[in-house]
Design a binder for these strands. Structure first.
Lengths: 205, 205
DNA sequence: AAGCTCATGTGAGCAGGGTTTACATCACTG
DNA sequence: CAGTGATGTAAACCCTGCTCACATGAGCTT
């Protein structure tokens, strides 16, 4: 369990690599970390990381996997069984979503901009589990809505997720050319959007 | 004006590079094109592209610039002065937005995932011009809404843009780990979302 | 037509990254 | 205490981004 490298083996290389990548991606974007650079930061030879990750993509996938697990927990806490009412709880979920995207931009990028290629089943499962929280919230919201205005719960969940992701993608993280200047916080923009949307379903204030 | 390279000079290198980049980015993502590869595809030495673009980022910025101009035109056409009514016209804009993201995924990526660094003023202006169309549509929609339910037009524009971008980002282009399987087309999902949202403002329906 | 100029392309070259392979070290286990 | 498997090293390969001095030739001036 040595960190400063007093022995031949690092003792914690895998974690060190993940954390170094998290830092670099947060600073310079998804493409902004070099495998060799991580190795250097850990005080290890350029080939060492390959003992822990098949390639760069595998490290990004690991980051995404952990990200989905954390996001799921944050959403579960925010949902809090829909108390005091589904609309308020969903707005809390929106804030939690943005908070997560801000707190761990590297994981967020890995989750939504990463690996155009094949997707590992465990990763897909983690993504499903995170979405399931929103899906469940949408079910509760629809159950609480007047019968006439009930759209399918899955669609509501997708709309909520879309609004959250759109807000996070456009207004947090590294600025892209398409980023608009905001006259309010992203949190307030999202809350207002969710409010308007849910009101149309007969929910909220 | 030679293409197959019968003379020392290419004659159209700049355009050839942009088009090759567009193709490669569409296939392999934003990081998936090599400057040297573009040169090879154009039958030119690896140093030649640097006569036309300062670096890789400059080419991406060019793609983004053209993208915003095209998107603006598409949105203007879709808006069609708000006929027959603002809600219907805004939904048409949403479809146009998705259609653009699908038709030119490389430009779309350059516009919204590109260059974490400084942004050229012309690029910013092009982005502003495209957003202005939506902004204008939101003004018209708000003007048509019952007085009690009028949120600020800018906020409505931002919500619409966010919904469009969220949908495009999550459900078109190269699949990311966070992508959900959809029981409908992205177009229908977005249309439904805009419908619910605008209904809350007292429009459409 | 002669000559100048400048945009455009070339070739060579440097630093550095991704990845593989054969080998070294070491913790653990029987 | 030897054997084994996990972990790190060294060296090597090719590719990329980018720079610089130089070559080419299109178009303008005269």
């Amino acid at each position: 369990m040595s960190f400063g490298r007093d022995s031949y083996h690092h003792g914690n290389l895998r974690e060190a690599l993940v954390e170094a990548a998290r830092r670099l991606i947060a600073e310079r974007g998804l493409g902004g970390f070099a495998f060799a650079e991580l190795a250097r930061a850990a005080g290890v030879s350029p080939a060492a990381p390959y003992r822990h990750f098949r390639d760069r993509g595998a490290l990004v996938a690991e980051l995404a996997l952990r990200g989905f697990a954390m996001l799921r927990e944050d959403l579960l806490t925010a949902w809090n069984d829909g108390r005091p009412d589904p609309a308020a709880a969903i707005e809390r979920c929106g804030r939690a979503y943005l908070h997560f995207a801000r707190r761990d931009p590297a994981a967020y990028a890995a989750m939504f901009d990463g690996t155009p290629g094949e997707t590992d089943p465990a990763l897909r499962a983690a993504a499903d589990a995170a979405f399931a929280v929103v899906r469940n919230a949408a079910e509760a919201a629809c159950a609480a809505a007047p019968t006439r205005n009930r759209p399918p719960a899955l669609m509501v969940a997708l709309h909520v997720w879309t609004l959250c992701h759109g807000t996070a993608s456009l207004f947090t993280g590294p600025p892209s050319p398409g980023r608009r200047p905001l006259p309010m916080t992203p949190e307030d923009l999202l809350e207002a959007g969710l409010l308007v949307y849910l009101r149309s379903l007969g929910l909220g204030g």
